Amino acid sequence: MKAARLYEYDAAMNVELKIEDVPPPTINGPDEVVVRVGAAGLCRTDLHIIEGVWKDIMDQDGSLLPYIMGHENAGWVEDVGSNVKSVKPGDAVICHPLRTCGICLNCHYGHDMYCEHGQFPGLGLNGGFAEYFLTNERSLIKLNTNIAPLDVAPMADAGITAYRAAKRAAGLLRPGAYCAVLGVGGLGHIALQCLQEISGCRTIAIDREPGAQQLAKDLGADFVLDGGPNVIEEVKQITGGGAHVVIDFVGELGVENICWKMLRQGGEMIVVGYGGKIEIPTLELVANEIKIGGSLVGDYTELVELMELNADGKVKMHYSQYKLEDINTAIDDFKHRRFTGRGVIVP
């Protein structure tokens, strides 16, 4: 099969993935499933993998390379293990990014993303930037008959990560409250749509890119700001003192230290993007009773919920499509923000 493989890490990202012919994956366990990839989302985590940010976590001795990235996958079931009952060859599916065991306490609680024995195709083992990839039955959700894998693949990670953050925010926001969304990219534009469906809050979308600003307007954000030097004051003026919730989908480049300053007293900042370092005087935390917490990828049931919103046409993924052989162009375009929404790789 054709696959795009990473051969070395480079903080400057001056390396390219190599398109090669490699043996396709095969069933090795009774619960495993081989998926023919219909589409695979390109994620900022993929850029961080190339940069070596994840090396100490997923590849301490360097033995993983070369390997196939790609953790936002959808396609069609190609082959199944002997115990697989819920899907069959030919079924269209989206894949929760984590292969979970189903028997640890976290799995029994429904917290799939905390699975004690979880494996992450595309992040530590071969993923979906290829014609086929291997996962297990527990990760699969069958798609509605009118939904194409191409239209939803990035929702496997970007979508449920945004949905989880929006769902958490919705629990904190009464009707008329304000939620600021920093970064209207592959995740932020999904969060905006989710907030509108599950919360009565007013949304403030903030992004420096004109294309992202226009997308936010098209999606119905109540306010759209360009993230200029006066953005904190602009947010406080709009909200009458600060946002009730701020969701940071950037998490680096200094944005992480702007976001908490937008909060009103008692507000909460939800950090989704990463790479930077938050610095805040403890007096600010205490005197204003603000809260700062991270938000990981959503669990299996949250992906089911998101697929229902998508099937009803309430939450849609905006994307640019690339062929597998053009993956390095896609990565470069993503790095330089030449497209709005998500990049999707199609084998």
Rank of each mutant, 00 (worst) to 15 (best):
D207K: 11
K277A: 08
K217G: 10
A170C: 05
V22Y: 03
I290Q: 10
D91R: 05
V255L: 13
D218W: 06
K167L: 15
L125M: 14
A177H: 14
D333T: 07
G29P: 00
L303G: 02
A170L: 11
A92P: 14
Y319T: 14
V272K: 02
V245Q: 02
D326G: 04
T45A: 04
A148Q: 15
D299Y: 04
I147Y: 08
E279F: 13
P149Y: 04
G171H: 04
G220T: 08
L303F: 07
R168L: 14
P25F: 08
P281A: 14
G242I: 03
V246A: 15
P121S: 04
L65A: 00
Y300T: 05
D151E: 12
G220S: 10
Y9V: 03
D248N: 08
K217L: 05
P97A: 10
L172W: 02
G176M: 12
L42G: 09
R168E: 15
E116S: 10
D31W: 07
E289F: 08
I27A: 04
D333W: 09
C115K: 01
G81S: 03
M317Q: 15
V224E: 01
V297D: 09
C201I: 15
E197H: 09
L150C: 04
A165W: 07
A148Y: 10
L283E: 08
V231W: 00
T135Q: 11
V77Q: 11
C95G: 07
V35S: 13
K335L: 12
V184D: 07
V34R: 04
R208M: 09
R208W: 13
A177V: 10
V346Q: 11
G293P: 07
T239S: 04
H108E: 15
E256H: 04
C194L: 08
D21S: 10
V35G: 11
T301N: 14
N144F: 15
K2Q: 15
D332E: 15
A158D: 02
G228W: 03
P30E: 10
G343S: 06
R164M: 08
Y114I: 05
G110R: 05
V84F: 08
Y132D: 06
E252V: 10
I278M: 09
C194H: 06
A156I: 01
G128M: 01
M113H: 12
D299N: 14
H48D: 06
C115Y: 02
P175D: 06
M58N: 03
A221Q: 03
N136G: 01
E72Y: 02
D112C: 07
A158K: 08
E284W: 08
F223P: 05
G90W: 08
G122K: 01
E252S: 13
M317R: 09
G298K: 02
A158H: 10
N144E: 14
G267N: 06
L225W: 14
A153K: 03
F334T: 13
C101I: 03
L42D: 11
A330L: 09
Y319N: 06
G293E: 15
I238V: 06
T203L: 00
V250M: 06
A162T: 03
I278F: 05
R168A: 07
E233A: 11
A156M: 04
G183V: 00
I68E: 00
V231S: 03
D248V: 06
D31M: 06
L303S: 03
